[in-house]
Amino acid sequence: MSGEGAVIARPRAQFHWQGLHVPFIAPWSDEQHLPITIVRRRGVGGTGIGYADELSHVDRRRDVLWARQAVARGSGTPFLAGVHPLRQRQAMSHMLCQVCGESTYGSAFRRWGERHLFVARAPKGRPLGEGEITTTPPICLPCAHESVGVCPHLRKGWTAALVERAQPWGVAGTRYDEKTLRTLPLPSTGLHMAQIGHLEERWTLAMRDAVTLHGVTSIDLGAVA
Score class of each variant (00 low, 15 high):
residue 99 V to T: 06
residue 94 H to P: 05
residue 73 R to E: 13
residue 140 C to F: 00
residue 74 G to H: 13
residue 49 I to S: 10
residue 59 D to N: 10
residue 134 T to R: 07
residue 144 A to T: 00
residue 159 T to V: 12
residue 140 C to M: 05
residue 87 R to C: 11
residue 23 P to S: 06
residue 127 P to L: 06
residue 72 A to R: 15
residue 99 V to R: 04
residue 167 Q to C: 07
residue 45 G to L: 14
residue 165 R to M: 05
residue 149 G to H: 08
residue 89 R to H: 14
residue 33 H to R: 15
residue 52 A to E: 13
residue 33 H to M: 14
residue 94 H to F: 15
residue 161 A to H: 01
residue 75 S to R: 15
residue 160 A to C: 07
residue 163 V to I: 01
residue 97 C to A: 01
residue 144 A to M: 01
residue 52 A to T: 10
residue 99 V to W: 02
residue 86 L to N: 10
residue 83 V to Y: 09
residue 166 A to L: 08
residue 91 A to K: 02
residue 34 L to V: 12
residue 41 R to K: 15
residue 104 T to Y: 01
residue 77 T to S: 08
residue 113 G to R: 03
residue 53 D to Y: 08
residue 93 S to D: 15
residue 114 E to R: 07
residue 121 R to H: 11
residue 37 T to E: 15
residue 127 P to S: 06
residue 45 G to W: 12
residue 97 C to R: 01
residue 74 G to V: 14
residue 73 R to N: 12
residue 62 R to S: 11
residue 140 C to G: 04
residue 130 E to M: 04
residue 82 G to C: 03
residue 110 R to T: 10
residue 84 H to R: 11
residue 95 M to I: 02
residue 37 T to C: 06
residue 84 H to K: 11
residue 93 S to I: 11
residue 147 S to E: 08
residue 79 F to Q: 12
residue 65 L to N: 04
residue 138 P to N: 00
residue 41 R to C: 07
residue 153 H to I: 05
residue 24 F to P: 08
residue 114 E to K: 09
residue 47 T to D: 10
residue 25 I to L: 13
residue 38 I to A: 11
residue 133 I to P: 00
residue 91 A to T: 03
residue 37 T to F: 07
residue 86 L to W: 13
residue 109 F to M: 03
residue 98 Q to P: 02
residue 77 T to F: 09
residue 60 R to L: 04
residue 150 V to F: 12
residue 65 L to T: 04
residue 132 E to G: 09
residue 148 V to R: 00
residue 60 R to P: 03
residue 25 I to V: 13
residue 68 R to C: 12
residue 135 T to M: 08
residue 64 V to P: 05
residue 28 W to H: 06
residue 52 A to L: 15
residue 150 V to M: 10
residue 109 F to K: 02
residue 165 R to C: 00
residue 97 C to H: 03
residue 139 I to H: 01
residue 106 G to C: 07
residue 32 Q to A: 14
residue 115 R to V: 01
residue 29 S to Y: 06
